[in-house]
Design a protein around this nucleic acid. Sequence first.
DNA 1: TTTTAGCACTCTCTGCCAGAGAGTGCTAAA
DNA 2: TTTAGCACTCTCTGGCAGAGAGTGCTAAAA
Lengths: 348, 348
Amino acid sequence: MAELTERQRLILALIVRDYTETAQPVGSARLAERYRLDFSPATIRNEMAALTEMGYLRQPHTSAGRVPTEEGYRYFVTHVVYQTDLPDSARHTISHQFYQARQDVEQWMPLAASILARQSRAASLVTAPHAERARYKHLELISTQGRQVLMVLVLVGGEVSQQILTLAEPVSQERLSAAALRLNQLCVSKTTEEIAALPTRSDALEKDILTLVLQDMSRGEQRVSGEIYLDGLTNVLSQPEFLESDEARQAVRLFEERSLLQDLLARTMSNADVGGVQVLIGGEGKWEELKQCSVVLARYGIPGHATGMLGVFGPMRMSYTRTIPTVRFMADLLSGLVSEIIDGEENE
Amino acid sequence: MAELTERQRLILALIVRDYTETAQPVGSARLAERYRLDFSPATIRNEMAALTEMGYLRQPHTSAGRVPTEEGYRYFVTHVVYQTDLPDSARHTISHQFYQARQDVEQWMPLAASILARQSRAASLVTAPHAERARYKHLELISTQGRQVLMVLVLVGGEVSQQILTLAEPVSQERLSAAALRLNQLCVSKTTEEIAALPTRSDALEKDILTLVLQDMSRGEQRVSGEIYLDGLTNVLSQPEFLESDEARQAVRLFEERSLLQDLLARTMSNADVGGVQVLIGGEGKWEELKQCSVVLARYGIPGHATGMLGVFGPMRMSYTRTIPTVRFMADLLSGLVSEIIDGEENE
DNA sequence: TTTTAGCACTCTCTGCCAGAGAGTGCTAAA
DNA sequence: TTTAGCACTCTCTGGCAGAGAGTGCTAAAA
């Protein structure tokens, strides 16, 4: 990547900014006037030509203004905006909202998604924190009609899963409770491997249930993420990119097809350290569906215990200046909340 | 409503069908040719004029074909399609898919949403079954760092809610477990009122927790529905209505703004008996946002115990012939599943 | 050497117009 | 009661001209 002069950086930044706001190719005269630059449109044209030459800008057609290329955004993100911090006022507003919802764990994820969407004026996604290694906390067996039993499994960290099991023959609630009690004493705080290594239960009922518990736990471990919370899709649907181009609309499928989203998260997760913000511009060649879109993602949580991802999805010309600091701040904030749940359990 | 002749009904039905498929106003010649009718375009024109006079059809402009009005769809739905049943093949396919997922309660709702979306080729929504009157089943207190405690409350019927509580001073896991055990013995199977009527606990910890449990239970009772599952939004976004008209796009906000959706469900819920399918065409004057859209909704579950809603949302010209029987069938199917969980608990 | 004014050129966008096409309503005949 | 024929209406499409925005180049100014 060639080095840019101070002035070129300024012009690139202003073009990104203007295009982000208007979605129209930006011309030299417009730029000079709107930002009261103290050099002339002609000078700007020369610099634009240079930036185009270097691959940071492009022209939709000969006599149009300039539009940033993927490389242009990339440069903007890494050199101009990456360091900026979220303004104190925003930090306070967000912290305050979380403070009010601190009791209600179930509100955390939707709240985070809603804040991300509002701040970035784009679509947001948040996955619930998810432990790579499941640890047993508590089992509850609820008798229903005849042979049907509702099994509720709570894992360390607070993940909860439910299953229905059909027994070979009806079993009373008393026997179920007794079985659950014994299994709870036996398994509490144990990992999948540790439970698998236990001697086989002599009682047939307990043995069957334990098999299901193990199945459930390892199924959870194989999943990339917990539940996915989305918000702000309408922000993105009203953008001109999505009204006009079929291509961009494709990207909305990402939000429906779990498999696509999981794939995206999995790949990004692997090379994301907690706290670092990943910016995927225009799919970076790898995701056809994201050609006209960008995704800003971060991982949060406590690695080795429970982590989740959160991010923002929008047109390539989204406001990185607003989005990146917000995503970073929210990741830190959720990490804090998760550590409050996890920390104590480590040394139980 | 004036009575229609057999032939008028046929023509109305064919116009609805054709318009549903093509989204284009349908003309007399086209209709005669496409469906090989044994009367001429001129006759059709006469009937169309009559149907227009009666308010079932309208013309976008003088020399265009006809489009059904809201009244037209309403007539079609009540007189033509309401009785039709879902073909056996579809019933079997759906039953089969649920049979495979019968163990995994958490899969039921997303699966139902996915099937509804696929069958109707529109957007679907399913709410988890939700009890109007909460009944305590089991409480779990998980100690985390210091004064933070994760509380997991399981209700009869399988609803689970989580909260974090911050105690005045640190409490050991042993004390927490003991408290939970006592509260469980005390409260199992009790309703909110019954728990509220219990004598105050002497132990301060137990008293505080019980207050939170009650708060949680009554908050749940005030909610209209459980969690909401959505699917198939892309089906609807690719329809011409949504590409062209801003008005229709408004309707997508329904799917994001919980409050709107809750409101819609609440109002429909109130005059829906379980099993009956409600069809809301073009918002029926009440919902501005739904002007160009229709919603097919049904309630499922066991009234008095746990009920939920499920439905399909799409352009006004959605295929009612496919959608209505599917919604009805799915409601019955989910009712069956819910009763399997509930039944046994009643006479515990 | 760098910046800027001037200018010719290019491309899109808008409005306008004419002709084709689709559909209607009416009238009169079957 | 149904249908063929026909005049009429309205939209849609393509072509075309003019306006507007923006560029690149050249030559003069700083």
